[in-house]
Design a binder for these strands. Structure first.
Lengths: 87, 87
DNA sequence: GTACATTTGTTCGTATGTATA
DNA sequence: GTATACATACGAACAAATGTA
């Protein structure tokens, strides 16, 4: 079959995974960007969405976004939102 | 010369100093209060600032501030900040 | 123009787990 | 065993700017 044998991440937080939750979430979002599910110039899910959808605290969500920001994948505009970087 | 021969603390944590880090940090902040660098009714540096500036964990920063609070040098207002006491 | 909701920024309280001296 | 220290993670509250009805 034509399905990739590299199974995609479930896009869920695994509480048994020793990897910190904020890094797991950063990896999930990074994957969505790389797969084009999150598009440049489009807003990232808000912090409160991440909180509700992934079941993490706001601090953890913020930290995940911070990782992506440090990697240049997203840009945050205060009081507006965080957007996927161009390029 | 007129410079005091009591050398001021470098306002840095000394990892070789057997004195606990939280007590060193408390002493640094106490010195800043006594020298008037931190003024009554003005906010103390935030926990996150102390974490970043002195390279300590949040728990350690909190313990340092706790010491000052126990000594009546500062007052903490929940969700607001910690302030240098008057008097 | 006003009121409200949304979103990020910031701060504080608390708890757990791990490591080290 | 105790004290110290760090990293992680939860929750809560308030401020400020923005967008919209």
């Amino acid at each position: 079959m034509l399905v990739s044998n590299v199974y995609s991440m479930a896009d869920e937080i695994d509480r048994w995974n020793p990897e910190p939750v904020y890094l797991q979430l950063a990896a999930i979002l990074r994957g969505q960007i790389e797969r084009g599910e999150l598009v440049p110039r489009q807003p990232l899910p808000s912090e409160s969405y991440l909180v509700g959808h992934y079941g993490v605290s706001r601090g953890t969500a913020r930290r995940a976004v911070e990782v992506l920001r440090d990697q240049g994948l997203v840009v945050t505009i205060p009081q507006r939102g965080t957007y996927v970087s161009e390029r």
